[in-house]
C-alpha cells in the first residue's frame, strides 16, 4: 500500500517537472483549455484540469503564453498560444530535456 502510494507520488513529481515543456510544446497553434487537455491525453500525457488551467494562467502571467477569447459555436472559449518569449524558452527547454534524457538513459542502462 505504502509502496504504491510512494510510486504514485513519485510519478506525479516526474510529470509535474515535465508539464511546462509538454504544454508549451503543444501550443504552437492556439488551443483552448479543454482541447489542449484532450490533445495532451491523446499523446499520453494525462493532466488533471485542476493542474492545467492554473498552469496556463501562470504561464500567461510569465509572458510565455498569450490568450484571447473567441466565440465558437455560440460558446466563448479562451484560446492560448505560445508567445515569442515562450518560443525562446521552449527551444532552451528542449535542449535541456535532450541532455537529461541522454544522461538518464546512460544511468538506467
Amino acid at each position: 500500500m505504502a509502496d504504491s502510494e510512494n510510486l504514485e507520488n513519485m510519478v506525479q513529481e516526474l510529470r509535474r517537472g515535465m508539464l511546462v515543456l509538454a504544454v508549451l510544446s503543444q501550443l504552437s497553434r492556439q488551443q483552448y483549455g479543454y482541447a489542449l487537455l484532450k490533445l495532451l491525453a491523446d499523446r499520453g500525457m494525462q493532466i488533471d484540469q485542476g493542474t492545467l488551467y492554473p498552469l496556463l494562467r501562470r504561464l500567461e502571467v510569465q509572458g510565455l503564453l498569450q490568450s484571447n477569447w473567441n466565440v465558437e459555436a455560440g460558446r466563448p472559449r479562451r484560446y492560448y498560444v505560445i508567445s515569442s518569449e515562450g518560443k525562446k524558452l521552449l527551444s532552451r527547454l528542449k535542449n535541456e530535456w535532450g541532455s537529461m534524457v541522454t544522461a538518464m538513459d546512460g544511468m538506467l542502462k
Binding site: 483552448y32 479543454y34 488551467y53 494562467r57 477569447w69 460558446r75 472559449r77 479562451r78
Partner: peptide, 17 residues
Amino acid sequence: RGRGDIEAELRSTLEDM
C-alpha cells in the same frame, strides 16, 4: 482580480466536458 475570467473559462470547460 481575474475572478470573472476564471469563472468564464470554467463554465466553458464544463460545457465542453
